[in-house]
């Protein structure tokens, strides 16, 4: 599956890009997550790794569709 991956905070530093096309095997958020952890081990050092689609947090079981925009949400620290 090919998606549009958007990253903020430390996730952007790890990926070195704010936006990129990302191809991975599988179709769920869980698949994307394991693929990211494999290719970018630095993600496993984070306290938490969440994902958003359509401006909402999504569970690991959420199924993505081709060319969907997925936003990586590393641990937030507003306030």
């Amino acid at each position: 599956m090919k998606i549009k991956l958007v990253a903020f905070g430390i996730a952007k530093d790890i990926l070195t890009h704010r936006q990129q096309e990302f191809v991975f095997e599988g179709s769920s958020i869980a698949d994307l997550k394991s693929n990211l952890l494999e290719r970018f081990p630095a993600f496993s050092d984070l306290k938490k790794l969440s994902f958003a689609v359509d401006e909402e947090y999504q569970e690991d079981t959420f199924l993505l569709s081709e060319d969907k925009e997925v936003v990586i949400i590393p641990p937030v620290s507003g306030g």
């Binding site: 984070l46 306290k47 936003v71 590393p74 937030v76 620290s77 507003g78």
Partner: peptide
């Protein structure tokens, strides 16, 4: 807000910088 709102802050020190709360 500190738990759920997707906002991130980076602390800038004299000798480096760090994304707050990113690591355990």
């Amino acid at each position: 807000l500190k738990e759920s709102v997707p906002i991130w802050k980076k602390e800038i020190f004299e000798d480096g910088e760090i994304w707050v709360a990113a690591h355990p």
